[in-house]
């Protein structure tokens, strides 16, 4: 994926706050998404991921802060703005009597007045059905589709208007591995071929690592980490874990300098060494470490420190 993101950020959020009654959900969220980027928002349940996305979609009014999406405030943006934004929704039984072809045709129609020579809207329905892998089911009643097929339809509805910016809230929840892989390919295609900027939330860290140019970790109402998967992993001390055994005794040691540590280990232990294993820290380790640190209640800003294991 290219890294030359030009011009204005498509999303810029600063000091975003959201409170329900006396409960603070977001206490000061800042981040940007640049044109063509795929950004993944991670965080534990109840951290405010969905709330954040709904504010950016213009479906919810924030309590405070400054939000710009495609150059406008989503709370007051008009229909022309709406035509440039795609939202993949998790609905569950709407339009049961309709067929995917009918529904996409009907909903796609709303984008016709917003078609431009550079960006023709909406997508051709047959082409889109093929893209999301629903051609065989195009004329079945939606009520008879499986959960995975329904989600593909949700994705198709979300992108029917050829959006410049796409929001995906847990897009692959309930997907089988094949559907998940197909979906990942679709995201890459949208991002590479169409230049669509994408903001998605997920609980699947492998997915985040695979899809995202950049990962944001949201916990306790703020962004505690922002960077590529590699950068985040490097932020947490002990990027690798060396496990070894000398006869019946087993040892574990976290280290940044794997090669140096292993060399010394071999020099010291020599033939005593009966087993050796190096495990690189995964995004999952990093994520859990960061979330634990901030959920423990300290650290207003991401302070880097040794993580006890």
């Amino acid at each position: 994926m290219s890294s030359d993101y030009s011009g204005e950020p498509v999303i810029s959020v600063s000091g975003l706050r959201m409170a329900y009654g006396t409960r603070d959900i977001l206490t000061g969220v800042d981040f940007e998404v640049r044109q063509g980027e795929v950004v993944c928002l991670l965080g534990p349940n109840g951290a405010g991921k969905t709330t954040t996305i709904e504010i950016l979609e213009g479906f919810r009014l924030p309590s405070g802060g400054d939000v710009r999406v495609l150059g406008e405030d989503p709370a007051t943006a008009g229909d022309a703005w709406r035509a440039r934004v795609g939202v993949v929704l998790q609905s569950w039984r709407d339009h049961g009597r309709w067929t995917p072809r009918m529904l996409l045709g009907s909903l796609g129609g709303y984008f016709v007045p917003y078609s431009t020579p550079e960006r023709t809207r909406p997508y051709d329905v047959d082409e889109l059905l093929h893209t999301v892998g629903l051609d065989e089911h195009a004329d079945r009643k939606i009520a008879t589709l499986s959960g995975g097929q329904r989600r593909r339809l949700d994705v198709a509805v979300g992108i029917i208007g050829r959006p410049e910016l796409l929001f995906l809230d847990e897009p692959t929840a309930g997907f089988d591995p094949q559907a998940r892989r197909d979906f990942h390919e679709l995201v890459h295609r949208l991002s590479d071929l169409e230049g669509t900027s994408i903001l998605l939330t997920t609980h699947d860290l492998a997915e985040a690592e695979k899809l995202a140019d950049r990962i944001l970790i949201l916990t306790n109402g703020r962004i505690v980490a922002d960077g590529s998967a590699d950068e985040l992993t490097r932020q947490v001390a002990g990027t690798a874990e060396v496990r070894w055994a000398c006869g019946p005794e087993r040892f574990v040691h976290p280290t940044d300098d794997v090669v140096g540590f292993v060399r010394r280990l071999v020099e010291q232990q020599g033939d005593e060494l009966t087993d050796l294993e190096v495990r690189k820290a995964t995004l999952e380790d990093t994520y859990l470490a960061m979330v634990q640190r901030f959920e423990a209640g300290h650290g207003a800003a991401p302070v880097l420190e040794e993580v006890p294991r």
């Binding site: 979609e57 479906f59 229909d79 022309a80 709406r82 035509a83 934004v85 939202v87 929704l89 998790q90 609905s91 569950w92 039984r93 709407d94 339009h95 909903l107 709303y110 984008f111 007045p113 917003y114 509805v157 979300g158 208007g161």
Partner: peptide, 20 residues
Amino acid sequence: MEREDGTLLRHKALPHGMQG
């Protein structure tokens, strides 16, 4: 029902969707 099952939300996500 359509407020609950997402039909309405789908239209809210479209330009001029609510009018339609």
